[in-house]
């Protein structure tokens, strides 16, 4: 299924002058295989991971992960705890050396050129890591001379919007306030790329909402490229245009959310009939569970015509297909029952 590219630049300034052309393309590997020129172009994108492997002792925390973000993309990296997200993010930030593979930011090796690359990258970490005795204003004073540009008034405005006192030591702020300060610090130098590692972990609903609103505002104003790891799947569904699922160090999925949701359906048959199993198999299911009086099937690569044919058939009478939310897809692919539902799934979901 191909999707049309949206060229927003034809719309005159008032809609959003800074939302750049976002080329929604197919999976990274496919495009890279298309031509070496394409591979080189992709490597120059804001973020590109090339077969990154991180090994601790005998275990591969990250196993041959490749993904890439074009300019303006918002990518959500999902995975259960321990799936390797943090290790991957550390490699992408140049803070950890991958055992194999490369992490590229703007076409340059993240480990070797970290110091210069960070001038264009805003980072919001999972745990607040600013020194606890320092106030937000002092943190801004530390960071300001390090970047080519710094929006000091914007920083102060954000603190006011978040209701964060600029002169209270960081350690005495609430978790939500600390997250807001981290975001404000990350956005102040107008970075081209934002990397957020579970930024809303532990935040209440209000703080979480305020955080994403601020992020969206920045996206609207400047079209920043964003890599986001999170468990907040509801937010991902709305904000991200692309998602990847990391399980056991491997990238199970890497595609646009729109396409993902079109591909997956939950089909249930009220009462299974003799020919139902075979017919269901023909729909390319991902797994099937029999519960009491009905059969539930998770179907990948859903095809509307085929399903309608199935519905019309005697074994498929009363069949219903319902779409899944991203959360349901995620749980189905990586949850406890995932091995049942996904016999073809690789790796240990844990």
């Amino acid at each position: 299924m191909s999707l049309t590219a949206v060229s927003v630049s034809t719309i005159a300034g008032s809609i959003s002058p800074k939302v750049p052309a976002a080329a929604f393309t197919n999976a990274h590997a496919g495009a890279a295989a298309a031509s070496p020129g394409a591979a080189a172009r992709i490597a120059a994108w804001p973020l590109a991971a090339e077969a990154i492997t991180v090994r601790y002792g005998r275990r591969n925390a990250v196993d041959g992960v490749s993904l890439s973000l074009p300019e303006g993309a918002v990518y959500a990296l999902l995975g259960r705890n321990g799936a390797g997200k943090s290790s991957l993010v550390r490699c992408l930030l140049g803070q950890q050396r991958a055992t194999a593979g490369r992490a590229l930011l703007f076409g340059r090796d993240a480990w070797r050129h970290r110091a210069t690359l960070m001038a264009q990258v805003g980072v919001v970490p999972e745990q607040p890591d600013a020194p606890p005795g320092v106030t937000a204003r002092q943190l801004a004073r530390l960071c300001r001379p390090l970047y080519p540009c710094w929006d000091g008034s914007g920083f102060e405005a954000r603190l006011r919007r978040f209701d964060v006192p600029a002169d209270r030591p960081f350690g005495r702020l609430s978790k939500g306030q600390q997250g807001h300060v981290a975001l404000a610090l990350a956005l102040a130098p107008h970075p081209r790329l934002l990397i957020l590692d579970d930024p809303t972990l532990g935040l209440d609903a209000v703080a979480r909402r305020a955080f994403f609103e601020e992020l969206i505002g920045d996206l609207a104003d400047r079209g920043t490229t964003v890599l986001l790891t999170t468990h907040d799947l509801a937010a991902v569904e709305r904000i991200a245009d692309r998602a990847g699922i990391l399980a056991g160090g491997r990238l199970l999925l890497d595609e646009e959310i729109e396409r993902l949701k079109q591909r997956f359906r939950h089909i249930w048959l009220p009462s299974p009939t003799p020919g139902a199993d075979a017919a269901l198999d023909a729909l390319s299911p991902r797994g099937r569970v029999r519960r009491n009086w009905r059969v539930e099937t998770l179907v990948e690569n859903f095809d509307e015509e085929r399903f309608q044919a199935f519905q019309a058939s005697p074994s498929g009478a009363g069949a219903e297909a319902s779409p899944l939310t991203l959360e349901e897809i995620f749980v189905a692919l990586t949850g406890e029952g995932s091995r049942q539902l996904a016999p073809g799934a690789e790796g240990d979901p844990r």
Partner: peptide
């Protein structure tokens, strides 16, 4: 102290060389 409390990443996430 920063290293043990996992706060050193604050500096490494900024455009600061390790030497700096």
């Amino acid at each position: 102290a920063d290293l043990a409390a996992r706060r050193l990443a604050f500096f490494f996430s900024r455009p600061l060389s390790g030497a700096a």
